[in-house]
Simulated scan of single mutants.
Amino acid sequence: MQVQFAKPRAARRPMRRSALAASFALAGLVAIGASPLAISSAAAADDGKAERPMLLAQASSSDSTEAAKSDVKVPEAEGKVDVEKLMAEQALPDIVIGEADAPVTIVEYASMTCSHCREFHESSYPQIKKDYIDTGKAKLIIREFPFDPRALAAFMLARCAGDDAKRTAMVDVLFDQQPQWAFSNQASAELLKISRLAGMTEDQFKACLNDKELQKKVVAVQQAGEKDFGVNATPTFFVNGDKYAGALGAAQMGAVIDSHM
C-alpha cells in the first residue's frame, strides 16, 4: 500500500491553524505498507542535479542591470517584527544559505506545495543568489510553513536528507519537480523517487515519514510563524525584520535588500 496524501489545491490560500492541524491528522499521512514502491528507470538514471531556470536578466550587461534597479520602487513592508525574536532558536535549527555574517537576513516562510513559492524559487531566487547571497551581502533562511500533508512530508524528507547542504539541495529539487509530486495521484511514489536521488533508501524514506518527533517539530515551526510573526500565507519574507507577503520579483527583492545595506 502506498501513502495516500490528500491532493492539495493548485492555488494556495491562507489556511487557519485549526484546518491545518486537522489536515496533518490524516491517518494516511505516514501509513506506509510493506510493498515496495516502484521507481522508474528514468528516475533511477537521473543524476539529481536539477537546476532552476535562469532569468534572461542574468545575460544582460551590468549597466543595464544597474539601470533596471534604479527604476524599481522598494515595495512597502506590511509591518516589522522583533528581529531578536525572529532569529531566536526554533523547534528545528535554521539552515543558513550564504555567509552567516551577511548584513541582510532574509527569512522565508514557505510551503513545498505552494505554487507562488515555486515561482519565487524558479524566477527570482537565482538572481538574488547571484547578486546578493553569493557576494556575501545577504543570507537566506527557509522555514517550514506546510499548508497540507504533502508539504509536511516533503519538508520532513528534506530534513532527513542529510547535512545542511543536502537539505538545501533537496528543497531545490522538490520545488523544481513540484508538479510531478505535489499534484500526483501517486505522491508517495514520486517523493520516493526524489528521496532516492538524495541517497535515501526505501527503509529510510519510511522511517523519516514515520518520525513523529520530526513531524511535531515541523508543525511547531509553522505554528510559531503564525502565532509570533503573523504568517498566514506563503511565501512570506522577513528582510531584517520587515515583512513582505507574496512572491517578490528579483528586482523587487533586490530593491528591498539594497534598502537595508
Results as ranks from 00 to 15, higher is better:
R9Q: 13
S18F: 11
F24M: 10
A25V: 09
A27M: 09
V30Y: 15
S35M: 12
P36V: 01
A38H: 12
S40F: 09
S40Y: 12
S40H: 13
A43K: 06
D46L: 13
A50K: 10
E51H: 13
R52V: 00
M54P: 00
M54T: 01
Q58W: 07
Q58E: 12
Q58R: 12
S60Y: 02
S60C: 03
S62A: 11
E66L: 09
S70V: 00
E76P: 00
E76M: 15
A77H: 04
G79M: 02
V83M: 14
M87Y: 11
M87D: 10
E89V: 15
L92M: 11
P93S: 05
P93K: 14
D94V: 03
D94W: 04
D94R: 04
I95S: 04
I97V: 10
G98F: 00
A102N: 06
A102K: 04
V107E: 01
E108Q: 08
S111M: 07
S111P: 04
M112H: 08
S115M: 15
F120T: 06
F120I: 06
H121W: 15
Q127W: 05
K130L: 06
D131S: 09
I133E: 05
T135M: 12
E144K: 01
R150Q: 09
R150G: 08
M170I: 04
D176S: 10
W181H: 01
S184M: 06
N185I: 01
S188M: 03
I194K: 07
I194D: 07
A198R: 05
A198Y: 08
G199M: 14
T201R: 14
Q204D: 06
F205N: 03
K206L: 10
C208R: 01
N210G: 15
K212N: 14
E213H: 11
L214Y: 00
L214A: 02
Q215A: 10
Q215T: 03
K216W: 07
A220C: 01
V221L: 10
F229S: 03
V231F: 01
A233W: 02
F238S: 07
N240K: 10
G241E: 02
D242S: 11
K243T: 00
K243W: 04
K243Q: 03
K243R: 06
A245S: 13
A247K: 05
A250Q: 14
Q252S: 14
G254M: 11
H260T: 00
H260Q: 14
M261G: 12
